[in-house]
Simulated scan of single mutants.
Amino acid sequence: MLTALEVFTTVVVGLLVGVEFSVAFVLNPIFNGLPEDSAQLGRAHGGRMLGALMPFWYIGSLVLSAVWAIAGWHHPGAGLVVIAAALLIVSVLMSILLLVPINNRSKTWTVENRPEDWKEQMNRWDRFHYVRVAVIVAAFALLATALA
């Protein structure tokens, strides 16, 4: 049963990393290459769509990691899982404190009501997101190492 939990948790976190990596390094660069209105509208739609799903995915990943850490406390790699869970806590805190406030504003923007500094706000979101991606990549690497 522990092995199934370990594999499931690693897959869930790995998929989270894949989605967030693609947002940072594929989708947003595509949006940024579109004409100005299209870029902002694409980001707003992505913010609405992923903003509804990601809280569950982040919290679910953290809960699964915590359960693995508790259930596997006396098994090899438990320390790595605890560190991975701590990194996932950091990613959740970053999301709540830094990224979600910007996302909540930007997902309501249209061409008519966006603020003049919308590009600056998107650039700030991108910088925070790059750091968050690095944090969850590190968490995933630790989980994969603990699984091996």
Rank of each mutant, 00 (worst) to 15 (best):
V11W: 06
V13W: 01
V13D: 00
G14T: 04
L16T: 10
L16R: 00
G18Q: 09
V19N: 01
V19I: 15
V19L: 11
V19M: 11
V23L: 09
V23E: 04
A24E: 08
F25E: 03
V26T: 12
V26P: 02
V26H: 05
N28I: 10
N28T: 14
F31C: 04
N32Y: 10
L34E: 06
L34A: 15
E36K: 12
S38Y: 07
R43F: 05
R43K: 09
G47C: 04
G47W: 01
G51H: 06
G51I: 05
G51S: 07
G51P: 02
L53N: 07
M54N: 09
M54L: 14
Y58M: 15
I59E: 03
S61I: 00
S61P: 04
L62S: 01
L62K: 01
L64Q: 01
L64T: 03
V67G: 08
W68Y: 14
A69V: 08
A71P: 00
A71W: 02
G72S: 09
H74K: 14
H74I: 07
H75W: 11
H75K: 12
P76T: 14
A78N: 14
G79C: 13
G79S: 08
L80Y: 08
A84G: 04
A85R: 00
V92S: 07
L93Y: 07
L93F: 12
S95L: 12
I102H: 02
N104S: 14
N104D: 14
S106T: 13
S106M: 15
K107Q: 15
W109V: 13
E112F: 05
R114H: 13
P115C: 07
W118L: 06
W118A: 08
K119S: 07
K119H: 09
E120K: 09
E120R: 13
M122E: 12
N123H: 11
W125N: 02
H129T: 08
